[in-house]
Structures are given as structure tokens and as C-alpha cells.
Design a protein around this nucleic acid. Structure first.
Lengths: 119, 119
DNA sequence: CAAAACCGTTGACTACACTCCATGGTTTTA
DNA sequence: TAAAACCATGGAGTGTAGTCAACGGTTTTG
């Protein structure tokens, strides 16, 4: 699909999609059978963009995401993939725990508000 | 306590602590009974710094955190605190869910690696 | 077939959250 | 008491993740 459709479906801007492509997080091919310069984004890029969003929410930087997707895509880099993944998973677990602890504070604040507005 | 001790105990740099203070997220008082310009950070600032870290992991910006702490500190701003808190709590819940979904992908990747290294 | 809508490229710009450096003063310590 | 360690202030600089504007070309649509 073309970038406009991908932008609409993913909820990201064209600029962001191009930015991710420049960074090597996603890839496109020249549109088939047309002499323009338009790029064609495979369907699975949509899923990839979704993963990128979730990874960011989990605390991954784009550099981290690039390592991970490069790993998925079979380009085993010159680093210990298993160690990287183990360490990152641990980080994510800690992040989630901390976010949950914070959520509880937030919910307690809300609850106290409902009992006694602005107490 | 002085900023050096606070930095050591919190794991943050002096610069970060001063930055948070400039941003209005924490407060200090002049050190008592001394004619220097040193600042004294109350004990509870440590806890506050911990909350700030967790809030960031939950996806809060410093501006969000400032609103929340201003709210806690009783300076009820000119905004609907309850609405803000409700919306933010919902955002955090979604963030956590997305992070958890991502964590599962990560763990699946790790698991498949342990079964069949680089398959 | 013309206007509107879309596309790619380049490069500058922005917001956020720090981080560093220089300067000069104050405490602590050996 | 001198050196080392600490402190405050101001301002500049950094990295990350986008975002915007301008240009000219291509497709789609009424």
C-alpha cells in the first residue's frame, strides 16, 4: 500500500513513517509496474508499526527496537542477542511493575477525591 | 539534607535534581542556621523523586507530573483535577497493557531462542 | 483536462529531558 | 590551614523522536 493509506491505518503521520524507514525500522519497495517514485509498503508493515508503538510504551528506544527487529528479520548482528533480549525483558518487567505501583497511587488519589472532593 | 546526599540516595545527578526543582517538581529550603547559600532538601523529597521516576515509567511527562504533584500539594489549579486524573489513569492502564503485550512477544522470542538457538 | 490530492526528497526546526561547563563561594578533612 | 570536596548560578550543549515547509513530480477525480 502507499504511505497515505498506511498513515491512515496506523494512525501515524507520513513523516513519522518515513522517519522510521530512514532509521531502518521498516522497509518498503518501489511500487510495482509504475515508473513513478512511489513506494509500496507491504501489509505486514502495519503490524510492525503496532509493535513499535507497544515497544515504546514498554520503554524501548528506537535503537533498541531496531536491534530487536533486525534480530527478528534474521540479520543476526555482532552482539549477543540472547543477552540483549534477557536484559531488556527484565527492564520491561521492572518498568511495568513501577508503572503499576504508580497507577495505584493515581487510583488512590482518584478514590479519595470521590469520597471527599478536594479534601 | 544537602543535594549531594540526595543525589547519592536517589541515584539521580545533582543536575537532574536541580532541573526538577527549577521545573517546580520538588522544593527545598535555605539550610537552617548557616549563612551560606546551601539548600536543604526535606526527607520526603526522596520519596517524591521515586514517584517521579515511576510516573515517567508510566508514561507521564514532567508537565503531567507537575500537575499531579501540584494537586497533591493542595494547589488546586484552574483545571478539572478529577477529569485529568481519570484520563491519565486510563492512559496508564492502556500503556501497561501495551507494554505487557510487548513483553509477551519478547518472551516468546527468548523462548524460541532457547529451544532452537538462532533458528 | 484541470484542480485537487497524493507522493518523494531535502533540510531545517521543535519539544522534551536532561547534561556539561565555567565561575566563584563554602565546608570538610588530613 | 591548605587541599579536597562540596555547593549555587547561569547559560550553553546534547540526544531522542519526531515535525514542518518547500520543491517539483504523479495520480485521481469531478
Amino acid at each position: 500500500m502507499r504511505i497515505g493509506k498506511l498513515a491512515k491505518l496506523s494512525g501515524l503521520s507520513r513523516d513519522t513513517i518515513r522517519f522510521y524507514e530512514r532509521e531502518g525500522l521498516i522497509a518498503s519497495v518501489p511500487e510495482e509496474g509504475s515508473s513513478n517514485s512511489y513506494r509500496d509498503y507491504p501489509e505486514d508493515v502495519l503490524e510492525r508499526l503496532d509493535v513499535i508503538g507497544k515497544a515504546q510504551d514498554a520503554g524501548f528506544s528506537l535503537a533498541d527496537i531496531k536491534k530487536l527487529t533486525g534480530f527478528w528479520d534474521g540479520q543476526n548482528q555482532d552482539f549477543d542477542g540472547e543477552l540483549f533480549l534477557d536484559e531488556k525483558a527484565e527492564e520491561v518487567r521492572k518498568n511495568i511493575e513501577r508503572a503499576q505501583a504508580f497507577l495505584e497511587m493515581l487510583e488512590a488519589t482518584i478514590a479519595s477525591l470521590k469520597v471527599d472532593p478536594r479534601g
